[in-house]
Amino acid sequence: MTDHQVHLQYKLKDYHQASYGWAVACCKFDHDKGQDVLQAAYLKILEGRAKFDGFSSFKTWLFSVIKNTAREQLRKERIRSLLQAAIRVQPAEYPDLEEEQNRNIEVYRLKVALSGLSKRQQEVLHLVFYQDLTIQEAGHVLGISTGAAARHYERGKAGLRIRLTEENDP
């Protein structure tokens, strides 16, 4: 292993927890898929297929790589599920929400509320509230302008607030 790879490994380790959370969020909260995506993203970086150009911070670049890897994996997954549908095999099920509900009611409520938002809004909210990134950095990760990211953030937050209130007062 080269010095560069060792250096990269140290950097990846620093952001491992945050990367895992982002990978899971990119895979519709499926932890197994998130782990696969994270592994594939690490592999891309260590093999040199994804190179850090220094235009942004290492964290935002790493999150972009994870996001793109998750998109590739989900595309493959979609094709596989189409094949499965064609031969009438039951597709793999998404994480059991009931089990999730028992595990933590708060997180379950958040996930239910988030499911009513657009994908972009969910991503921006995750990056800002979970990953503590600024709106500008979130825009960098998602490849959109700061203005667009701010709009997604505002609308997403308003939508989330309404949904959480509705759940409290049915």
Binding site: V107, L110, L125, Q136, E137, G147, K157
Partner: peptide
């Protein structure tokens, strides 16, 4: 452009997650 408005309730939920 880079500043996000704090929302303690939402942030709290994300922290639990």
């Amino acid at each position: 452009p880079g500043v996000s408005i704090e929302d303690p309730k939402i942030r709290g939920l994300y922290q639990v997650q």
